[in-house]
């Protein structure tokens, strides 16, 4: 994969088939696919272990099907402040933990 729009399409294709209330078994390909979406590289051993464990864990999450639809009263207010200039990190401090910098900038991997 080379860009994020592609991965969004892949996620959309993942819509579960009819009757997904059966046990939530996952196979190795699904684990690899989610790892790709999450941008976490796994080795074959991890894929095998996660395939087993995810089946058990997702099975236990099935209990959430019994939860009634509940009114969610969130008592939230926006917290605003004046947009004033304050002292922050110096450029040197902000860059101090970066693996690679150049002329006061972070250096990232090539984009494509």
């Amino acid at each position: 994969m080379s860009d994020t729009s592609e991965s969004t399409d892949e996620a959309a294709e993942e819509t579960p088939a009819e009757g997904d209330d059966a046990a939530a078994a996952v196979d190795a390909d699904e684990v690899r696919h989610v790892a790709e979406l999450a941008r976490v590289r796994l080795d074959d051993e991890e894929v095998a272990a996660f395939t087993d464990q995810f089946g058990d864990i997702l099975d236990s999450f099935e209990a959430l099907d019994e939860v009634p639809e509940t009114d969610r009263e969130e008592d939230l207010i926006n917290v605003m402040r004046e947009d004033e200039i304050e002292e922050g990190l110096t450029q040197e401090e902000a860059l101090a933990n970066a693996a690679e910098t150049e002329d006061g900038f972070f250096v990232g991997p090539k984009v494509s």
Binding site: A12, E14, T15, V34, A38, V40, L42, F54
Partner: peptide
């Protein structure tokens, strides 16, 4: 890794509502 993957799975299209 397990939690990042399961979190990604739980938020992905088709599973978000479930």
């Amino acid at each position: 890794k397990r939690r990042i993957l399961l979190g990604t799975y739980a938020l992905s299209a088709g599973y978000h509502d479930k």
